[in-house]
């Protein structure tokens, strides 16, 4: 197990170096001069100032040297400076990153709570109306544009029923609608996987044995069947979190939730590369680490897995 975890962590090194290289190259790949983009829509300074700026920013050095410099500053927590707000990117992203993580985590809780219950109910009441409705909702969830669902939620709960604030990121009440929007859509996929793995498990001999022992149905389902049925759900958890994290980028715009997604989209339209690079790096690292955790969790939950 320890050996597996170490190997799994070592495997991350090339991926993270690749991500760093991609993020570094983003700016280099952009057609046009970074300084030109910096002064987009403004009066550009004279040639001498431009040369000086270019030297200060290290843009006159060869690309490999720039990459080493870039890596060096990233390692020291320096993500550069926004070319629009002139603020350090790291400081700007800190609270936004926290907001995005809060939203993603809250959505995951919603997705798991709703998805698992729906999936279990569909499997237990197989071929009934509950099962059919769950499967239909799963198909709907897969096809639902998140931003549209978000707008519907706003119209329904914030305007018609006046239960919740429309948008912004003030307190917990502001979290409810975006988390429900993201979570409910993701829950349909979890419901589908829970249902099929529950159906597999429910026909297993040990479940029959548990019933034969005279255990109550609730205990059989929740303690005996669900535990093993959860394993496929855990395997897709990493993918789900990626979906939620990505989905958050769009949903943050719908609800004006001040996370990294909202900032990323603003930065892309302003061609503010240090900000885009910083966000890409932070989110990619998060996602890679989350997948690592999921893989480890998977091993803890299923002792049958042999690490080779």
């Amino acid at each position: 197990m320890i050996g597996y975890i170490v190997r799994r962590i070592l495997f991350l090194v090339p991926v993270l170096i690749g991500v760093l290289a991609f993020v570094f190259l983003m700016r280099a790949l952009v057609p046009g001069d970074p300084l030109e983009i910096m002064f987009l829509g403004q009066m550009p300074p004279d040639q001498a100032t431009l040369t000086k700026l270019r030297h200060e920013m290290g843009l006159d050095k060869p690309l490999p040297v720039q990459f080493v410099d870039y890596t060096w500053s990233i390692v020291h927590g320096d993500l550069g400076q926004s070319v629009r707000t002139r603020q350090p990117v790291a400081a700007e992203l800190a609270y936004r990153y926290e907001n995005t993580l809060i939203l993603t985590f809250a959505s995951l809780v919603v997705a798991l709570a709703v998805g698992l219950s729906m999936g279990i109910a569909a499997a237990v009441y197989r071929d009934t109306l509950i099962d059919m409705a769950t499967m239909m909702l799963a198909m709907f969830g897969l096809s639902m544009p998140g931003f549209w669902f978000g707008l519907i939620m706003i119209m329904l709960f914030a305007v018609d029923l006046r239960w919740l604030p429309v948008m912004g990121s003030g307190g917990p009440a502001y979290l409810v609608l975006p988390a429900l929007t993201l979570g409910l859509i993701a829950s349909t996929i979890i419901a589908r996987i829970t249902r099929s793995s529950m159906l597999d498990v429910l026909s297993a001999p040990y479940v029959r044995t548990a019933r034969a022992k005279g255990l109550r149905e609730r205990v059989v389902i929740l303690r005996h069947a669900l535990r093993n049925a959860l394993i496929p759900v855990v395997t897709i958890l990493g993918l789900q979190l990626g979906g939620l994290l990505g989905g958050a980028f769009i949903i943050e715009v719908v609800f004006a939730w001040h996370g990294v997604g909202e900032r990323a989209i603003q930065a892309i339209s302003q061609r503010d590369f240090p900000v885009i690079q910083g966000i890409t790096l932070v989110v990619a690292t998060t996602y890679v680490l989350v997948n690592l955790l999921v893989d480890i969790l998977y091993g803890v939950l299923d002792p049958r897995i042999v690490y080779g």
Partner: peptide, 25 residues
């Protein structure tokens, strides 16, 4: 496959956004 691993290190929508950032809206 290593290139693919790096691409998969970004959630789908974010990868698309990063490419739009490079190419322009």
């Amino acid at each position: 496959m290593r290139v693919i691993d790096v691409m998969l290190a970004l959630p789908y929508i974010l990868l698309a956004l990063a490419i739009v950032a490079i190419l322009g809206p």
